[in-house]
Design a protein around this nucleic acid. Sequence first.
DNA 1: TTTAACGTTTAAAACATTTTAAACGAATAT
DNA 2: ATATTCGTTTAAAATGTTTTAAACGTTAAA
Lengths: 177, 177
Amino acid sequence: MNGDLIKAQDIFLGRVNQTCNKFGLNNIMAQVYALLYLCGKPLSLDDMVERLRISKGSASINIRALERYDVVRKVWVKGSRRDYYEAQVDIEKVVMDRIKSAIQTRLTEVDGMINLSTSALDIVDFSDEEEKEAVEIFRQRLDRLRKLHGKAKELFDLFDTSLLTTALVSETEETAK
Amino acid sequence: MNGDLIKAQDIFLGRVNQTCNKFGLNNIMAQVYALLYLCGKPLSLDDMVERLRISKGSASINIRALERYDVVRKVWVKGSRRDYYEAQVDIEKVVMDRIKSAIQTRLTEVDGMINLSTSALDIVDFSDEEEKEAVEIFRQRLDRLRKLHGKAKELFDLFDTSLLTTALVSETEETAK
DNA sequence: TTTAACGTTTAAAACATTTTAAACGAATAT
DNA sequence: ATATTCGTTTAAAATGTTTTAAACGTTAAA
């Protein structure tokens, strides 16, 4: 049996690991997905454990996270009691989904931040003449933030409603060979 | 002296902290910037230490990181030996710079990943008939990744060269009041 | 000079996250 | 029934990151 393929895959997987650190992603989750993506055939938990030298618990937890994200699928393999998983190979969709979700989370978060702070500012007592200017600056900053958020949201909606997305997302749903 | 303003600012700062965790950003760095952004006037290290209840070392390290990112500026205050800092108030620019830099880092990282793996794959010995198919799948996956990377890069360049950016970036350089 | 006021560095601590090993329970095979 | 093969759970260990307190060096004041 020829080990060159394994070696080449390991180089890819190693690099995925490195990339993950820079991206702030979970190493094992990404590696599990990468392995499934590369192999193009269903693997069992034990396959992953052996191939990536990780614990079974970790494999179990991470594969289910990947399932929730809809980037891997559980498949049934005839004659085996094990759970097998295969990667969603439409990587464009996977990446787009993640990016969109990340942006949306952040936009919502910032929106909440602005609203909360605006309410807080409205309660400030204006009697103190000395603070009037500081309050005014605070208000200006919030306005500016609000404007930025609005524009970002517009841009995201544009991004979301195809116009730009079509340029990026897989043209055909050709799934492997 | 009226504490309402402080309270309102604290609410904002608290929320920034919470937001940071979700964003994977450094809490103190963001809080320092947020404080300077809100106050709209130069603050010294000790001001930040007192206002945010952080250590001086932390303030020092983080303010310099912010300086490197070009989001705060050291300013000279007459009659004081301290270093004072003020926020770059053009928040659109700050955010855009960060986003662009993040995207570029990731694109470069992925590019490296693809190239490295491609080289690794080229070395694989083809003699083993059984592995031929697996190698082919690997190759297909890499091709697909390369395509995605290419499109992402195109999109980013579009984003970078104004077309979309103009919609987002500050129209005038009006710097506070 | 000597002293005081700074900003910076650094080693240790506090903290959060990830990973593991082992125990567990459910399902199937014997 | 019993034993085995699975996936999951969980408490503890490993790891990585952030934060601090204290020591340090430098500059300006006294």
